[in-house]
Amino acid sequence: MSHPVPESTLPALVQGELTLIGGLNERLFRLLAAIASTGSITQAARAIGMSYKGAWELIDRANNLSPELLVDSSPGGRAGGGTRLTPAGQELLNLFQRLQEEHRVFLDRLNRELAANPNFRFLHRRFGMKSSARNQLFGNVKRVVPGAVNAEAIIALKGGDELVAAVTHKAVETLGIEAGREVVALVKAPQVVVVKDFGGYRLSARNQLAGVVERVQRGAVSAEVVIKLAGGDALAASITNDSVDQLDIKEGEAATAVFKAGAVILGVAER
């Protein structure tokens, strides 16, 4: 079932100025339309926010490049002067305005199709979020477990992975964190530990997400290790280059991203 997006949000999805082959754009045709309505190059330039000199330069160039004269002007006198479109100029303007309307109809249809696509709608909304946290994971709250001081929110990620976030009771109430609510979990890369072999030990960290090393990107001092989880989500860890060498971390090998529940910040979309 599709969910319509409010009309006011549609232009935010796909926009575009109609540009013809050769670089002809709306500025020339806005000027032609203004000349047609005012009969004056001075008034036309003022109407579209151009300088008088710039308007004449654009008209002169268009006239020079066109097989037929597009704009004609007559000097002032007792009969008065003026600037007008020639039949060729009016025909060109009419054609562009028709193309412009077809272009508007096309963009409107495309926006509606994109807005009706749930994957695109979610992606569009989520990309609008700006955060310095390297890891941004979206999921749904499975359950909220209250504690003496804080509560634990269990988040279901893609592919069956679960993430645990420790949040205050106040945050649970204020954000409306409850079963079924979509949330975004923010985790900074330096707070993620990479484990290749537990060596028979168990760790107290609530989040231990197993996957495969997808990428190791070294910097001057530290490296970013990206672990791909079973469901397709990726988690980035920032560790030193020495740690990469000591652990012998290689792409394609199994590894586990480990981080505390307190390292997770939850966010919710406005209702």
Rank of each mutant, 00 (worst) to 15 (best):
S2D: 13
H3D: 13
E7C: 10
E7P: 11
T9A: 15
L13S: 01
L13F: 08
V14I: 12
G16Q: 12
E17R: 13
T19P: 07
R27W: 01
R27M: 02
L28Y: 11
F29P: 02
L31M: 03
L31C: 04
A33I: 02
A34R: 05
S37P: 00
I41K: 11
A44H: 01
M50D: 04
A55M: 00
W56L: 14
R61Q: 14
R61F: 10
N63I: 06
P67F: 01
G77Q: 12
A79L: 14
G80P: 00
R84G: 03
T86Y: 09
P87L: 13
G89H: 09
N94F: 04
L95K: 13
Q97W: 04
R98C: 11
Q100R: 10
Q100C: 04
E101D: 11
R104W: 03
V105H: 13
V105P: 01
L110P: 01
E113R: 15
E113Q: 14
A115I: 05
A116I: 00
N117C: 08
F120D: 07
R121T: 07
R121Q: 08
R121I: 00
F122H: 11
R125Y: 07
F138Q: 12
K142S: 14
K142T: 05
P146L: 14
V149N: 04
I154A: 00
I154N: 00
E162R: 11
E162Q: 12
A166Y: 02
T168E: 08
H169S: 03
T174E: 15
A179E: 15
G180D: 05
R181C: 09
V184F: 05
L186A: 03
A189V: 12
V193C: 05
V195T: 09
Y201G: 08
Y201I: 13
R202A: 15
A205Y: 09
N207C: 11
N207R: 10
Q208Y: 10
Q208H: 09
Q208L: 09
A210W: 00
A210M: 02
V213H: 12
V213E: 11
Q217S: 07
G219M: 04
A220R: 13
K228E: 13
G232R: 02
A234L: 11
A234I: 02
A236E: 01
A236L: 09
S238F: 06
T240M: 09
N241P: 08
N241G: 10
N241K: 08
S243D: 08
D245G: 02
G252K: 07
E253M: 11
A255E: 09
K260C: 03
I265H: 15
L266Y: 03
A269F: 15
